[in-house]
């Protein structure tokens, strides 16, 4: 297996290799050693390849990812898989703020907790969190699904559009326009499918559905600015 050591090369050299040289090499699996919290590791991937990051990543790990399956054997900083298009990013530890922000597609799996603003402005990504998520998560989430196996913090799904969240634990508070809705058979199937993808064993019956009430879609002159 190809092994790249961030004690020996810079992250710029690493990413240039991943972008320019890797696609022609036919490599199916590689590992990155000594990430040590460096930023932008394996950001901008555009190749089908399995990447194992052996340690803790910094900001924007797997940002803008397309096609690659990236596993971080540790924690990550802000903005993991931000703006992801496709592929998978799995974090074995915890993720800091803004995990999966603006993600268009693919799957982000976080086995531990995530910090604030997880899935903010998500646009089609699927996010599965094994632990709990911080405050203001899913703010203005436009499309995609988020499964939260633990608890959710304050202001979940504030001003959310068409995205749907499934929460197993407690929700500290819902954001403006977010509401708890009854689970349908399609919801149970969706939760089961996402849990299977993540490898988490929970009963979909334990989850509740959170979605936007869509009351903010149109200007309401009678609301007196009280939302």
């Amino acid at each position: 297996m190809e092994s790249l050591d961030l004690h020996k090369i810079t992250v710029r050299e690493l990413n240039q290799f991943l972008h320019k040289e890797l696609p022609g090499k036919g490599v199916k699996k590689l590992e990155i050693l000594n990430p040590d919290g460096v930023h932008s590791i394996a950001a901008g991937m555009d190749t089908e390849v399995d990447i194992d990051i052996q340690g803790h990543g910094g900001y924007y790990v797997g940002g803008m990812n397309k096609h690659a399956n990236i596993t971080v054997h540790g924690n990550v900083g802000w903005g993991v898989a931000e703006n992801m298009m496709s592929g998978t990013v799995r974090v074995k530890g915890f993720a800091s703020s803004a995990a999966g922000a603006s993600g268009h597609g693919g799957t982000l799996i976080i086995e531990g907790d995530t910090s604030l603003r997880c899935g903010i402005s998500m646009k089609g990504i699927d996010i599965v969190v094994g632990g709990s998520i911080g405050n203001f998560s899913g703010f203005m989430a436009q499309a995609g699904r988020m499964v939260i196996c633990g608890d959710a913090g304050d202001g979940l799904g504030d001003s959310m559009y068409e995205a749907v969240f499934y929460v197993r634990g407690n929700i500290k508070s819902l954001g403006a326009d977010a509401q708890i809705e009854p689970m349908t058979d399609a919801d149970y199937a969706a939760v089961q499918e996402l849990l299977n993808r993540a490898g988490f064993k929970h009963d979909p019956k334990e989850f509740k559905r959170v979605a936007g009430a869509k009351k903010l879609y149109n200007w309401n002159a009678d609301a007196n600015q009280e939302y």
């Binding site: 040590d36 919290g37 460096v38 930023h39 803790h56 910094g58 900001y59 924690n75 900083g77």
Partner: peptide
């Protein structure tokens, strides 16, 4: 502020 200052 960030883990990269703790890695060593």
């Amino acid at each position: 502020s960030e883990y990269r200052s703790l890695a060593h």
